[in-house]
Amino acid sequence: MMKYFSVRNRSILKELVRADFKIRYQGSVLGYAWSVLRPLLLFSILYVIFVYIIPLGKGVPHYPVYLLTGVILWNFFSESTIQGLTAVVARGDLIRKIKLPKYLLVFSSTISALINLFFGLVVLLVFALINGVTPSVEWLLLIPLILELVSLSVGISLLLSSLFVKFRDISYIWEVVLQIGFYASAIIFPLSSVPVHLRQWFFLNPVSQVIQDSRYVLATHTSVTMWNTVDAIRFIIPFAMIAAIAIIGGFVFKKRSRTFAEDI
C-alpha cells in the first residue's frame, strides 16, 4: 500500500486534481462559487418539480432531503465513472511520454468527483437543517457509506478505463447502463411506493443499498433499506459485488496497463 502512495505518486495526484479543479471553472466570472451554486440550483429545480408539480414522495417524511440525498450520491457515482472511463485515454499524452503509475489517472478523476460530492453534501446538510431534520451522530455513518460507493466507483473506473483503450464502444454501453441504473437505484421515486415483492430486486444494485441507507441516516427512518428488506445472507450481495468488481477491475487494469502506451 505504501508503494501506491509514495511521495512522488502523491505529488502527481495532487497536481492532477489541482489542475482539473482549476480548469473546470476557468474563465467563469463566479469561479469556484460554482462548486456550491451548481448543487444549489439543481436542488431548487428538483424541489419545485417533485414537491409541488409531481409529488411522488407524498407521505415520506422530509421527502426533499430524501430526494436530494439520492440525487447527489447518484451524481457522484455517474460523474466519477464517466470521468474514470475516459481517464486513461484522455491522458494519452502523459502515458506515451513518461513512466507514471496509470492508476493515478483514474484516482484523480474519482477524487475530482469526490470534491464535487463534498460541496453537494455541504449544501445538502444545510438544506436538511432548514427542512427541519434534527442533526444526529448518525450522520457520521455517511462516511463509511460514501467510502463504500467510492470503492465501487474506483473498481468500475479501473475496469472500464482499461477496456476503453481498445474498445471505444464501452462509453456508449456505459451511458445506457447508467440510464438504467438511475431508475434501478430509485432516485426520484421512493422505494416505499414500489410493490413489496419487487423491492428486494433493487438491492441487486449496490448503489441502491448505499443510497437507501444514506436516506435512512439523513432523512427518515422510514427509508426502505436492504437490511430491513432481505435476510442476512442476501445482505452480503452488494458487498460481495463491490469486492468482486474492485478485484477484477484492479486485475484487468494492472494487466492491460502494461501496453497502454502502445495501444492508445
Binding site: V7, R8, S11, I12, K14, E15, R18, A19, L94
Partner: peptide, 13 residues
C-alpha cells in the same frame, strides 16, 4: 501552474 504540473510529472514535489 504549468511549471508545478510538469515538475510533478518529472517526479518533483
Amino acid at each position: 501552474d504549468n511549471v508545478y504540473l510538469n515538475g510533478a510529472m518529472l517526479g518533483f514535489t
